[in-house]
């Protein structure tokens, strides 16, 4: 299980000789995922969602905040210990074409982490071999046909399965899946999503699922939590199904409206709206709602006062929350 309290990440960029420009990529984020549970983080590119995942995996250091994994505060561990400890958090990256070393065979890539563990536990080569076969079979790959292959000989879906198998070699407690299926053919996505969903139950893995696609989030974590993030801030959070059926924040509604409607099978929600304005990088003053420049329902108050995330269970940061029926319904 994983517990995150008040996570903040500020990136500073040099701005000439005069000083630094600070960008708050993640702003005071708190959440917890029980063992076997799921939390989906939804937002556009540039919303800071990838940064959260990289912090959990130990690839970035947060500016402030606490991360508890299996009841241990990661931030208080000495660096060397933290490295080993964070092996329990594994990151599945977006691009399966970059995630495997092109110069090494699948077998070599899977053996490497197992050799480290074998040394720690005093296991032999046969144990490594059996673990390699075990994880490959678990992700639905035939060891005999892939072990000697190089990554470029496999399809995107197959590579992502190998990446998941590699993560499983270290017996993780938390999987961070960062847009894990967005570069795979749609026809093969569901297979990988199902694998992630099954791993939750089978190994009690907590799944932190980062995506821009509400439908994938629902598939892997219908029983979990959904956090909608915009420019580093959580604008709506709560149980996944409740947010999909009762979205309160206009940004959540925009994300739900953006899901394609299957003509012939579904009717678009009566309140569906497609925002044509793109995600621009302009800074919003601290006194205004961060979504105000793009919000089609913004009012005068939205420019003067920034709403805070409030509500127990299902929370949202909006001055004028209105439930809109934007989700398509089956015919």
């Amino acid at each position: 299980m994983i517990d995150v309290k008040n996570l903040v990440k500020v990136f500073t960029a040099k701005k000439g000789v005069l000083g630094h420009d600070a960008i708050e990529a993640v702003s005071h984020m708190s959440f917890s995922i029980p063992g076997g549970g799921a939390l989906s983080l939804i937002g556009e590119s540039g919303s800071g969602k990838t940064t959260v995942g990289r912090i959990l995996a130990g690839l970035e250091v947060p500016t402030s905040g606490d991360i508890w994994i299996q009841r241990v505060n990661v931030m208080t561990l000495p660096p060397a210990e933290r490295r080993t400890f964070l092996r329990q958090v594994q990151l599945i990256q977006q691009d399966p074409y970059q995630a495997l070393n092109p110069a090494r065979t699948i077998e070599q890539s899977l053996e490497d982490p197992l050799k480290v563990i074998a040394r720690e536990r005093g296991k032999n080569g046969a144990w490594i071999q059996s673990r390699v076969h075990e994880v490959l079979l678990r992700v639905g790959m035939d060891p005999g046909s892939v072990l000697n292959k190089y990554p470029h000989m496999l399809s995107g879906g197959q590579r992502q399965r190998i990446v998941i198998a590699r993560a499983l070699t270290v017996e993780p407690k938390v999987l961070v899946a960062d847009e894990a299926v967005s570069m795979i053919d749609v026809s093969l996505r569901l297979g990988v999503l199902k694998l992630l969903k099954d791993l939750r139950q089978e190994f009690g893995i907590s799944l932190f699922f980062i995506t821009h696609d509400v439908a994938s989030a629902r598939y892997v974590g219908e029983d979990g939590q959904l956090f909608v993030i915009y420019k580093g801030q959580v604008v709506e959070s709560g149980p996944t199904d409740e947010i999909i059926s009762q979205p309160h924040h206009p940004y959540t509604q925009a994300l739900l409206s953006a899901v394609p409607v299957l003509k012939g099978l579904e009717d678009p929600g009566p309140d569906r709206f497609i925002p044509l304005r793109g995600n621009d990088q302009e800074q919003v003053p601290d006194t205004a709602c961060i979504y105000e420049p793009r919000c089609p329902f913004a009012q005068a108050k939205c420019q003067k006062e920034r709403p805070v995330l409030q509500g127990a269970g299902h929370a949202y940061a909006c001055h004028f929350p209105v439930v809109r029926r934007v989700v398509a319904t089956m015919k």
């Binding site: 995996a57 130990g58 690839l59 490295r83 080993t84 964070l86 092996r87 958090v89 594994q90 990151l91 990256q93 691009d95 970059q98 995630a99 495997l100 070393n101 092109p102 110069a103 090494r104 890539s109 490497d112 982490p113 480290v116 990446v163 590699r166 993560a167 070699t169 270290v170």
Partner: peptide
């Protein structure tokens, strides 16, 4: 900066391994 190097770091592989077994072959 490539994914497989970051993956090697999160898998707890040593810097020696990363330099000579992950980067060098490339």
């Amino acid at each position: 900066e490539r994914g497989f190097i970051e993956a090697a770091r999160t898998l707890g592989l040593s810097p020696f391994h990363i330099l000579f077994k992950e980067i060098l072959p490339n």
